[in-house]
Amino acid sequence: MSPQQPVRAALASLLIVLPAFFAAAVAADAPIVGREAPDFALRAAHGPNVRLSEHRGEVIVVSFWGSRCSTCAAQLQALDRSYTIFRSAGLEILGVNVDDDQRRAAEAAGGYSLQFPILLDPQKGVSRDYRVDNLPMTVLIDRDGRVRYVHRDFSKPGETLYLQELRGLLNE
């Protein structure tokens, strides 16, 4: 959607005769919390392609995981539980797998029998946009499309906090 076209991409495409002299607007290294969640479209392990912005109006949880990360399995199950409970209140969960090998990713996903879509980011473009520096990493996005909370790793107290934050976002 045009107004949200990343300015950076637009700048990169300028090819006029006078040499391109626009400073590549490098995104500041500020944390993404409080900022607009970078939009993306990814293929799903099973099912149709998914675009983040089509879910505006819902509370979205984007969780980055890999098939080799040990705590990811437990975390995905926890997410699945919260999905069952809160789905009807407007929750959408997107699991983004970052494995290089897409087939392995799809197999791993199949093994967990999760109810929410698993998306594949083998090029890791989306992971870069979201500055994923740890797996699992879970991003909570509010109904306005803004990143509100980020969880790195998974633990019991972490899960409690996550549920609390989720309720807050759903009630907004």
Binding site: G57, S88, A89, G90, R143, E172
Partner: peptide
């Protein structure tokens, strides 16, 4: 603050 569509 704002309310969204309150289904519950």
């Amino acid at each position: 603050g704002w309310f969204w569509q309150l289904t519950s």
